[in-house]
Amino acid sequence: MKRFECFQAIVPLIKDELFVTTAGGATAEWNAVRPSDGNIQVKTLGLCSSIGLGLAVALPQRKVFVFDGDGALWMNLGSLATIGLHQPKNLIHICWDNHQYESSGGEPTAATADNLDFAGVARSAGIKSSCAANTVEELKEAVRHALNNDGPHFICANIAPGRAEAPPLKYDELENKYRFIRYIEETEGINILRIPMPASYLLK
């Protein structure tokens, strides 16, 4: 299965969940399928799972998806142990495993040799709801299960390499950040951004 067809298959299941997407091909494709200020792109390879963990812990009433890649997860494999330690019930971590560093030109990753079972690693790290999905139907079922049950959840989606035509993101990281925070403010009814008041305003 291809990543893009997976995205098209799961998007009808999505409402206002938050998405932290990896520094890789998944980001542009996901934004093409689900354009929303509830998506934030990551620029540091490997860090999406950690950012997703922080977001999930800070906003426990909200489902948080992390879209990872096999190269990115290899770089921060320890994050699975950290997620296993903290057990965020609302975190849904999907690794889009195409067995290569697609954004870097297709070099092999640790997954390429087929010795690495990401779902097994996640389960052993304490993420009990962990599975691999090899077909679009299996993936939809896993996502549906994750949306309807407490996690943390980990899904390794075994996909064929290849990118779909998707336009680049419309926003740079700063605009993306502000839009993302405003989206949380609006959907949660809370105030997050605090603009410091200049001292001259405070003086009588």
């Binding site: 950690s50 800070a58 950040k177």
Partner: peptide
Amino acid sequence: IAHLPVGREEEGIGVCTGAHLAGKQT
């Protein structure tokens, strides 16, 4: 104070970033 131990410090930069997006002072 919510305390989130991590295994490697760069993870912590990610955790603090994600928590900041939801309004935490980290």
